[in-house]
Amino acid sequence: MAAAAAAGAGPEMVRGQVFDVGPRYTNLSYIGEGAYGMVCSAYDNVNKVRVAIKKISPFEHQTYCQRTLREIKILLRFRHENIIGINDIIRAPTIEQMKDVYIVQDLMETDLYKLLKTQHLSNDHICYFLYQILRGLKYIHSANVLHRDLKPSNLLLNTTCDLKICDFGLARVADPDHDHTGFLTEYVATRWYRAPEIMLNSKGYTKSIDIWSVGCILAEMLSNRPIFPGKHYLDQLNHILGILGSPSQEDLNCIINLKARNYLLSLPHKNKVPWNRLFPNADSKALDLLDKMLTFNPHKRIEVEQALAHPYLEQYYDPSDEPIAEAPFKFDMELDDLPKEKLKELIFEETARFQPGYRS
């Protein structure tokens, strides 16, 4: 834990890192770190609560700039109880001085990944967590956004079992017609939660990839272990087919990539493993919904509104309290091709509203 900075004593240090967030945020305490930044909790002297502050230093890398800009653009436009918001952003007053960006968010005690390492969940908890994931996802999908990296560590939890989806750095506007060349190379989302079509096709992607990830998360809540822990690309596919069985001819016809289709045709026939054999203690309604989410063919996979209306979630289902976005989200430009200098300018502009004396 960093010592509390005395008023006016300059930035606090946390594990050798400068955290320049005073005077409003003090009493910093280390939480963890990701690929390009550290997260601390801090005391907000204005709202009198502890908050989470993520320090991001992305400006050396085009990919990190892209992810940072995506996350900020999306989260500043989203407003939903099951999606983490941005409360404040701290950065230098000029673009030349801006080396880091500090993002202030609600402090959540833990995440689903940490929880599943230590606790076996009751059916009631599984049901409530799944409902909140789908409630947040309904809003995301209504904005025409794909999260693309749903996994237990991106689901934040607090002691009252509130759940918030975080990390929109890989999110995209849904565009089933656009052929994202190089899709697989830039697709760094965790393999275990990846839909089979991501490994088999490169053309376009749809909201059904997020539903697949939610199915993987439900299976993990039922058993405290990942359902498809593939060691590499082909191993991942083999794990999936080992449980779902061989795809039907109709399902194979959806695979545009001939090499991928021929690979699947070359494999020995596998039978589907019954879900109640894998999860003998699970609620039968939970397994019915799991089956509809972990469907090989993305066109037959359940959609988020149908999933919310499934009998497993009937005690929570309330369409009048499951809000959607006001308007579909649009990125003005494809960020993939922009140089990091341009992305830095866009991050600077996007964060201006939090600067003292800002006038829109």
Results as ranks from 00 to 15, higher is better:
residue 290 L to T: 02
residue 99 K to F: 03
residue 113 Y to D: 03
residue 201 N to M: 07
residue 148 R to A: 03
residue 59 F to L: 15
residue 217 I to S: 12
residue 11 P to W: 12
residue 357 G to C: 15
residue 210 D to K: 10
residue 131 Y to Q: 02
residue 93 P to Q: 15
residue 207 K to W: 07
residue 351 T to V: 03
residue 98 M to S: 12
residue 107 L to F: 03
residue 64 Y to K: 15
residue 311 P to F: 01
residue 99 K to T: 10
residue 294 L to G: 03
residue 105 Q to F: 10
residue 44 D to E: 15
residue 251 D to S: 09
residue 87 N to E: 06
residue 259 K to A: 12
residue 325 A to E: 13
residue 137 L to Q: 14
residue 333 M to D: 14
residue 226 P to W: 06
residue 219 A to S: 14
residue 283 D to C: 07
residue 48 K to D: 13
residue 101 V to G: 11
residue 194 R to P: 07
residue 281 N to M: 04
residue 19 F to R: 03
residue 107 L to C: 03
residue 300 K to D: 06
residue 102 Y to V: 09
residue 28 L to Y: 04
residue 264 L to K: 04
residue 232 H to S: 05
residue 7 A to G: 09
residue 51 V to A: 12
residue 321 D to W: 07
residue 245 G to C: 14
residue 110 T to P: 15
residue 183 F to S: 09
residue 225 R to T: 00
residue 108 M to P: 03
residue 278 L to S: 07
residue 105 Q to A: 09
residue 310 H to R: 00
residue 263 Y to N: 15
residue 61 H to E: 01
residue 228 F to N: 08
residue 310 H to D: 01
residue 54 K to W: 03
residue 171 A to Y: 00
residue 2 A to T: 14
residue 81 E to Q: 04
residue 354 F to M: 10
residue 137 L to N: 00
residue 122 S to P: 04
residue 30 Y to L: 12
residue 160 T to W: 05
residue 144 N to L: 12
residue 30 Y to T: 04
residue 337 D to G: 00
residue 296 F to A: 03
residue 314 E to H: 00
residue 184 L to C: 09
residue 315 Q to F: 04
residue 123 N to D: 03
residue 357 G to K: 05
residue 12 E to Y: 02
residue 341 E to L: 07
residue 234 L to Y: 08
residue 213 S to A: 07
residue 16 G to M: 13
residue 319 P to T: 14
residue 128 Y to R: 08
residue 134 L to S: 09
residue 114 K to A: 05
residue 272 K to W: 02
residue 279 F to W: 06
residue 154 N to H: 09
residue 149 D to V: 14
residue 18 V to F: 12
residue 136 G to Q: 00
residue 13 M to V: 12
residue 204 G to P: 07
residue 353 R to Y: 12
residue 141 H to R: 10
residue 79 R to T: 08
residue 97 Q to T: 12
residue 238 N to M: 11
residue 277 R to S: 15
residue 262 N to W: 00
residue 94 T to D: 04
residue 70 R to C: 13
residue 349 E to W: 00
residue 204 G to F: 09
residue 128 Y to W: 07
residue 323 P to K: 01
residue 347 I to G: 12
residue 203 K to H: 09
residue 127 C to Y: 09
residue 331 F to Q: 03
residue 303 E to I: 04
residue 60 E to G: 11
residue 45 N to R: 10
residue 213 S to K: 01
residue 359 R to N: 09
residue 78 F to D: 02
residue 352 A to K: 07
residue 6 A to C: 08
residue 211 I to R: 06
residue 86 I to W: 14
residue 136 G to M: 03
residue 15 R to E: 05
residue 108 M to D: 09
residue 24 R to K: 05
residue 227 I to S: 11
residue 52 A to L: 02
residue 34 G to Y: 00
residue 81 E to M: 04
residue 259 K to Y: 05
residue 262 N to P: 03
residue 157 L to G: 03
residue 255 I to F: 14
residue 274 P to T: 14
residue 75 L to P: 15
residue 185 T to H: 05
residue 299 H to F: 01
residue 173 V to I: 05
residue 116 L to H: 03
residue 173 V to Q: 11
residue 323 P to Q: 04
residue 234 L to T: 09
residue 281 N to C: 10
residue 93 P to L: 09
residue 254 C to H: 08
residue 38 M to L: 15
residue 32 G to S: 14
residue 2 A to F: 03
residue 62 Q to L: 15
residue 227 I to M: 08
residue 117 K to Q: 11
residue 168 F to V: 00
residue 116 L to R: 04
residue 27 N to T: 06
residue 55 K to F: 04
residue 235 D to S: 02
residue 67 R to N: 03
residue 84 I to S: 07
residue 288 D to G: 00
residue 248 S to K: 10
residue 347 I to A: 09
residue 135 R to G: 02
residue 66 Q to N: 05
residue 254 C to T: 04
residue 202 S to V: 13
residue 261 R to T: 08
residue 329 F to N: 09
residue 265 L to A: 04
residue 81 E to D: 15
residue 173 V to H: 06
residue 110 T to V: 07
residue 49 V to M: 15
residue 270 K to S: 02
residue 53 I to H: 01
residue 33 E to T: 02
residue 264 L to Q: 14
residue 201 N to I: 15
residue 281 N to D: 00
residue 254 C to Y: 13
residue 233 Y to P: 00
residue 225 R to L: 14
residue 131 Y to D: 00
residue 169 G to A: 09
residue 228 F to E: 00
residue 237 L to D: 00
residue 282 A to T: 13
residue 34 G to W: 13
residue 195 A to E: 09
residue 44 D to W: 08
residue 101 V to R: 06
residue 31 I to Y: 15
residue 210 D to I: 08
residue 112 L to K: 08
residue 356 P to F: 03
residue 245 G to M: 04
residue 346 L to G: 11
